[in-house]
Design a protein around this nucleic acid. Structure first.
Lengths: 223, 223
DNA sequence: AATTAATTTGAAATATTTTAAAAACTGCAC
DNA sequence: GTGCAGTTTTTAAAATATTTCAAATTAATT
């Protein structure tokens, strides 16, 4: 069951959307107006957001831009009519898709399904019997569990999901801790050290995979 | 003995279905027409519904959609002929299977049995002589009863049914209390503590199974 | 050899979980 | 309705685990 946030200033539209989505595996939460919407986004985790562009206090683009400062949640913009300008602007600000009013049930659901399908996050990845599993929050090598802390788990997951790519300490801080974190770059080193040690203990050749890129950062070797 | 609701506007068809199902462990209730059907669904609990699509007052899809707003009861749609569009639409609205007229006894029963088999909810689960039984609302270890409160019972049941998977406090609140609950995450901790203590008392090694995942939530270990 | 960066180390600062106990709530019997 | 018993929720303190940071050490680069 996917959690969807509907943001619109018109209650009628919120009701209509809820009604449309009722038969589908979507659980809707309704936010009346931009401010209420932003509040919801900060407090809860959603799988998708349907965001109306035309709202009085703050328009949909501003809401979209603000959300994108701290979240990658998929967003579909709802526009009154086919206005190319609007659409381009919306997508540039980070929206993932758009739909024009009036729309029918099938189109709405089809776009939502498609967006979720293409943005579904990777939550399991395996390399040479080293398995990173986000659902279980476990890293294991040949069935032996490696007990990692949340930060260690997040760091190795990010690197494994992006093999070959170097991440600087600051990038890691932005991605793992979240932007606006004040954490020092050296802190990453500590976590890396602890993590390497724990993984080494179970016998996985971590040093063949998790490399330091001198003067730049860290990367997971693509084999 | 499974309780089945037959919804059709033709009495002849209701009789035919009842006749077919007579030799099998199904107890049939007949509803003539959509309205009567919906009334039954609201008043009684059924294990399965056989729903005709072509009915005068309100067609089967509408009935299906309405039922799905408040119930997950398995539904098999009965369609006059193989119409792909109809079937797709019906299944999207939440029906679980369909059967086309004319059908024979074997096919009907086979589909009903199969549907019941795959939708039967887990209501009993046992791990190392710790038995969680939803029908009796009892948890016991080697026949000794553990007296749990409803919340405690629901939490351990959910975790046992999903071994290996971590649930965050918020997820647990959504799933056990229901979305839109205002309950604090810390409340979960209290229930967990009380539950652990009660289970520990009867001698089950609960700490080997029910783990805290630091910074994330709780999980039941898959052994 | 000098310089710069990474790693190790350990201890302090933070965060999270557990424990415990009190307060609020609920359903039921009277 | 009122009171009661059991349940649920809240709160605060204690116990644990993680995260951070800075200093000392080691390694790589020029």
């Amino acid at each position: 069951m996917n959690k969807v946030l509907l943001i619109d200033d018109e209650e009628r539209m919120l009701e209509l959307l809820t009604l449309y989505l009722k038969p589908y595996p979507y659980f809707c939460r309704k936010a009346v107006g931009a401010k209420a919407g932003l509040k919801f986004v900060k407090e809860e985790k959603f799988d998708l957001i349907l965001l109306d562009i035309m709202m009085p206090e703050m328009n949909g683009w501003e809401v979209c831009r603000e959300i994108r400062q701290y979240s990658d949640v998929p967003i579909i913009m709802v526009t009154a009519r086919e206005q190319k300008e609007d659409i381009v602007k919306g997508l540039k600000l980070g929206a993932d898709d758009y739909i024009t009013k009036p729309f029918n049930e099938e189109e709405l659901v089809a776009r939502m399904d498609a967006l979720l399908r293409r943005t579904r996050p990777v939550n399991r990845i395996e390399v040479e019997r080293l398995l990173w599993d986000e659902d279980q929050f476990e890293l294991s090598y040949k069935k032996q569990l490696v007990k990692l802390t949340p930060k260690e788990f997040a760091i190795i997951g990010l690197l494994m999901k992006n093999p070959g790519r170097v991440f600087s300490r600051n990038q890691l801080i932005d991605l793992v801790w979240g932007m606006h974190s004040e954490t020092e770059g050296r802190t990453v080193d500590s976590h890396v050290r602890n993590m390497r040690e724990k993984i080494r203990e179970v016998g996985f050749p971590i040093d063949d995979y998790f490399h330091t890129v001198w003067g730049v950062g860290y990367k997971w070797i693509r084999k």
